[in-house]
């Protein structure tokens, strides 16, 4: 097999390239911040006025919802980068056709893209935490943990997104992705706790990567520190790594045929 392992220097050169393109304009960062802020204001504050407090948690509704929206923000930033942007690079820009003749291996390319995805989820996440701070929704110093947690969410959805992209045939397949992503966003306890679901439905929800992401961010943000966070960390690391490995394998076949 011509695909060989990755090196820090080679992988870094692709991350550097992507950062150079990414930093050309701030508008994607602002765009990826706009949607979550709208959700926070309309549902967190609007619907929150009707809800009051979430049973068992002693914070206002908006403070309960905000960390979940933060998790969604990190997810979308990384996932969109690895699906829409990478697919465009593969099919329209033919970016990788110019890279495979260089010393970079497919492992370098796949890892470089996922690292780029993680980094591209950093700015919107920090931005969203600042918005939370400005709106008085930061209730615990545990909020500081949400930034590294958001990076792990970026890794999980970056790896998964890259793997998904290797299965896409054309741009219309993005509608199928929305068919999965939208329900996950709505049902992964973003807007209400798991206790709302009947017992049989809970494992189904708990297996969603976004549910684990929300757990990982919401508890520290609310000042709750529980061992089950370790489960979320391991789960998300596994999802990202599995996606990355699968993507590397499939890209090798697609780019080196």
């Amino acid at each position: 097999m011509i695909a060989s392992g990755w090196t820090l220097r080679r992988t870094g050169s692709l991350v550097e390239r992507n950062a150079r393109i990414y930093r050309r304009s701030l508008s994607p960062v602002l765009a990826s911040l706009l949607e979550p802020v709208l959700y926070l204001v309309s549902i967190g504050f609007g619907v929150g006025r009707l809800v009051g407090k979430v049973p068992g948690i002693d914070v206002r509704y908006a403070a309960f919802v905000a960390p979940a929206i933060l998790a969604t923000t990190a997810m979308n930033a990384a996932f969109n980068q690895m699906t829409f942007v990478v697919f465009t690079r593969m099919k329209t820009d033919r970016t990788y056709d110019a890279i495979v003749p260089t010393p970079l291996s497919i492992a370098d390319i796949a890892l470089g893209e996922v690292v780029s995805a993680v980094l591209s989820s950093l700015l919107p996440s920090v931005g969203f935490v600042l918005v939370m701070l400005a709106l008085g929704l930061v209730v615990s110093p545990g909020i500081l943990l949400t930034i590294p947690a958001a990076l792990l969410v970026g890794y999980a959805f970056g790896g998964a997104g890259l793997a998904v992209t290797t299965y896409l045939r054309d741009f219309s397949d993005f509608q199928l992705i929305q068919l999965v992503m939208l329900p996950m966003f709505l049902f992964a306890t973003t807007f209400y706790p798991l206790s709302v679901y009947p017992g049989w439905a809970r494992p189904v929800v708990e297996i969603l990567p976004l549910y684990q992401s929300i757990q990982l961010l919401r508890e520290p943000a609310l000042g709750i520190f529980h061992w089950n966070i370790a489960v979320a960390v391991l789960y998300l690391a596994a999802v990202g790594s599995f996606g990355l490995a699968l993507a590397t394998r499939r890209l090798s076949r697609q780019l080196l045929a």
């Binding site: 220097r9 080679r10 050169s13 692709l14 550097e16 390239r17 150079r20 393109i21 050309r24 820009d93 033919r94 970016t95 056709d97 110019a98 890279i99 003749p101 260089t102 010393p103 970079l104």
Partner: peptide, 30 residues
């Protein structure tokens, strides 16, 4: 690392300038 390839399609980085294209490519070679 010791050969150069000019593919059939240019596959340039269209978001970048001429100079940046060369720079980014050089970085791939370490």
């Amino acid at each position: 690392s010791r050969i150069g390839v000019v593919p059939q399609d240019d596959c340039l980085d269209r978001e970048l300038t001429v100079r940046e294209n060369l720079f980014v490519y050089g970085r791939y070679f370490g």
